[in-house]
C-alpha cells in the first residue's frame, strides 16, 4: 500500500479498465462486529493479548486485521471486463487500522477499485486488480481500509 502503487499499464484493455473503474464506489455493504467471531478469530491464531481474547477486558476489540475477511457482495463492478485471464490468485492483503472495532459495532463498507496494472512473474503474465474496502463505524468514523490484490492470469 505504498503511495507509488502501480505503474503505467501496458495493454490497451488494462488502460481502458483503469480509466473507467479506478476510484468509483461499485458496492456497499454493512456488517455487525460479532463478539463470538472476534473471539474465535483471535483464539484460532494463538493470540494471547487480553485486549483480543478477553471480552471482559475494558479495551476488548477485534484483532487488527479482522476486516480482511469482510467482503462486499460484488468483488468487482458488475460490468467489469474479463481482463487478465480466468485464473485467480490471492496476491495479498494490506490492512490499515484506524480505530478499534468493538463488539456490536455496525460497520459500513464501500468497495472501489484502487488500481489495475500488469507485470510478469513466475506465474507468467499477471494482471493485478486492487480492490479497496473502506470501513466506517456507526459514528461514521473510519475504522479500517483493506487493499486486496487479486491476480488474474491465463
Amino acid at each position: 500500500m505504498s503511495d507509488t502503487e502501480g505503474t503505467e499499464p501496458a495493454s490497451t484493455e488494462v488502460q481502458e479498465a483503469k480509466a473507467k473503474y479506478v476510484g468509483f464506489v461499485f458496492d456497499t455493504a454493512t456488517f455487525t462486529a460479532e463478539q463470538d467471531k472476534m473471539l474465535a478469530w483471535a483464539e484460532s491464531v494463538g493470540e494471547t493479548d487480553p485486549r483480543f481474547t478477553d471480552p471482559s477486558n475494558p479495551d476488548f476489540q477485534a484483532h487488527p486485521t479482522f476486516t480482511a475477511s469482510l467482503v462486499s457482495r460484488r468483488v468487482l463492478p458488475e460490468d467489469f471486463p474479463k481482463i487478465g485471464g480466468p485464473r485467480g490468485i490471492d496476491g495479498g492483503k494490506a490492512v490499515v487500522i484506524q480505530q478499534p472495532i468493538r463488539p456490536g459495532d455496525r460497520l459500513k463498507a464501500s468497495a472501489t477499485i484502487a488500481d489495475i496494472y500488469e507485470k510478469t512473474g513466475r506465474s507468467g503474465t499477471m494482471t493485478f486488480i486492487v480492490q479497496r474496502m473502506s470501513f466506517v463505524n456507526q459514528n461514521d468514523e473510519p475504522v479500517s481500509m483493506v487493499d486486496w490484490k487479486m491476480i488474474r492470469n491465463p
Binding site: V45, G46, E47, H63, P64, T65, A68, S69, G92, K93
Partner: peptide, 13 residues
C-alpha cells in the same frame, strides 16, 4: 493468506 497475516499480528503483540 489472511490467517497467516493474523499470525504475524499475534507475533507482534
Amino acid at each position: 493468506g489472511i490467517m497467516s497475516q493474523a499470525l504475524l499480528a499475534t507475533m507482534i503483540h
